Computed example of a mutant assay.
Amino acid sequence: MQTRTLSMLVKASLFTAIPMLMLPAAATERTISELVDAVNGTPDNLSRDAGKKVKLRNHANGFCTSGVFKPNPQITDTFAIEFFTQANIDIVARFSLGGTNPQSSDKTAGRFMSLKLNGDTESLQFVTSNAEVFFASNLEDFFTFQTKVKQGNDGKQWLIDNKPDAKAFFDYIKKLPPTISYADNRYFGVNSFMFNSKNGAPVAGRWIFEPANGVITASADELAQKPDNFLHKELIERISTTPATWDLFVQLAEKQDNVNDPTIVWPTSRPRLLIGQVIINGQHDDAKATLECDKGIFNPLQLPKGIAPSADPILNARSAAYIESFIRRN
């Protein structure tokens, strides 16, 4: 994309959303500890202690690998973010399923990709999924969702009947077909961030990872022939010969877009800027950072200079919640 075109896109997205960032978050009396309990299904001291003993965590079924990020050289003509001036940035990646069961079946539709881009002096981290829409816009609804889904079908039906955002999420997931590789999915950062532009005005955007070979879905017959756990082996064997590759974009908000609500999917007509390319090739799988990846956390608020979080309450609770979860399992 030419520099002039990029500049035009940024000008189109420079917006009056800065006042929106000052809107108060939905009131909640929930503590970070309560939010983690809701995710883990540990509402009392007995279950919480049991969870600590087994090192209970979300996204328990997952594995780590590595690669490299190659920034788009032209992006620094638009964004004033020094992090992207590096030619190659090492990646530690973790691919996973949702939930606390380390033996959950790979035949479900949900896929998650978390990344650490470890630059010379700064780090950029991502927590993404193949779902473009989130189920709650505030922490109280987040707590309610996590609590109700632990109640099974009755709890899910209550959410469908009483929480429109949860119903929209379930409707989306119902139409989301499974894949036979982590490499075959688009991944979305549902939360918004503020990016410094060259002219000094902040630009709001969301991360989107587009697989280089496009989205490839699996038929029911293909899936039936697979064992319950196949995704780890498939990706490791794949990248031993051919890297798994994604183009990383920032989708830019326009002035009418609510940048603080992850339940709202922005129109596909919104402009996108190519930030660079993620290449997962396993080149550092024997490095300490990769081998110990499961022991740490991926923090989407770990940002280089020039990128800042929006006022989205879901986003701003993530760091503290991940740290609380980390402390409990260590």
Rank of each mutant, 00 (worst) to 15 (best):
A109M: 08
F209N: 04
A80F: 02
G282C: 00
G205H: 07
F15C: 09
A109W: 06
P309M: 07
S310P: 05
D90C: 04
S325Q: 08
I180P: 10
F142E: 07
R272M: 14
S105T: 08
L252N: 05
S47K: 14
V54C: 01
P177R: 06
S66I: 12
S33Y: 07
L252P: 11
A204N: 09
R48W: 15
N118S: 08
G155P: 07
N299S: 05
K55Q: 13
N196G: 04
K70C: 09
W158T: 01
E34F: 03
S219R: 01
R328P: 05
R30H: 15
R57V: 15
A308M: 13
S319I: 00
A12V: 03
I314Q: 08
A253T: 06
F143R: 10
V10C: 12
K174I: 00
T16L: 05
A80Q: 14
V265I: 10
T179E: 12
L176S: 05
T128A: 15
R318H: 11
T268S: 13
Q125I: 08
A166P: 12
P177Q: 05
M113N: 01
P227G: 01
E132C: 10
V203C: 11
D37E: 10
F188I: 01
N58E: 08
T31E: 03
A26C: 02
V127R: 14
E140T: 14
L115T: 04
R206C: 01
I18W: 14
E324V: 10
P211N: 06
K198A: 09
G296C: 07
D228R: 03
A244P: 09
R206M: 06
D221V: 04
P243V: 11
A168Q: 10
F145H: 08
K55L: 13
A311N: 14
L274P: 02
G119Q: 03
N213F: 15
D247G: 07
F69Q: 01
A50V: 14
E132A: 14
G189K: 05
S104N: 09
N61Y: 11
N138R: 10
G98F: 09
A220W: 03
S181A: 02
